[in-house]
């Protein structure tokens, strides 16, 4: 038996709405296997599917025949999930997302809640700089292990 500190799971799926569900399920099970609790898995499922639908819709611009690639790494301290598209479009958004008031008043598109949700649900959520020469956008989500703080003894 050879054991490793890092557990890596890779998932590749068709860049079409609906298939993100399968990736989300696979990542959720991976997180369950490494000991994440139910609440964090729910957060993770929502954040991962938001990253996937952004990648499908904006990164790959729904072009047929492309894929989305996910790499999940757990090292005992944190779970890191990278979601990569094939970069038909660079879509890193700048500035604050529109508020719900603006959306309901029709002053902003109803869509575009994904980034806000990911930022709130994950410990870290950001685009990765293009360092490996690929054209694609890569988005990283990180959840850190929570250290239980013990009550001081009296």
């Amino acid at each position: 038996m050879t054991t490793t500190r890092q557990h890596i799971i890779e998932i590749s799926f068709p860049s079409e709405f609906g298939y993100e569900v399968i990736a989300r399920e696979a990542i959720a099970t991976f997180a369950r296997c490494v000991g994440f609790d139910r609440d964090r898995i729910d957060d993770l499922k929502t954040a991962v599917s938001e990253a996937c639908i952004n990648a499908i819709e904006h990164g790959n611009k729904k072009v047929h025949g492309l894929t989305i690639d996910i790499v999940g790494v757990y090292d005992g301290n944190m779970l890191q999930i990278d979601i990569a598209d094939q970069g038909i479009q660079q879509y890193q958004v700048a500035g604050a997302p529109a508020t719900i008031e603006e959306k309901i008043a029709g002053k902003a598109p109803a869509r575009g809640m994904g980034l806000l949700l990911m930022t709130q649900l994950a410990d870290e959520a950001h685009f990765l700089p293009d360092t490996n020469g690929t054209r694609g956008n890569r988005f990283r989500l990180i959840w850190r292990e929570r250290v239980e703080t013990l009550e001081p003894e009296h």
Binding site: T3, T4, H7, I8, I9, E10, I11, S12, F13, P14, E16, Y19, I22, A23, A26
Partner: peptide
């Protein structure tokens, strides 16, 4: 056809 690929650690 649509293909989904998973690569898993042998654990």
């Amino acid at each position: 056809e649509k293909v989904i690929e998973l690569r898993l650690p042998s654990r």
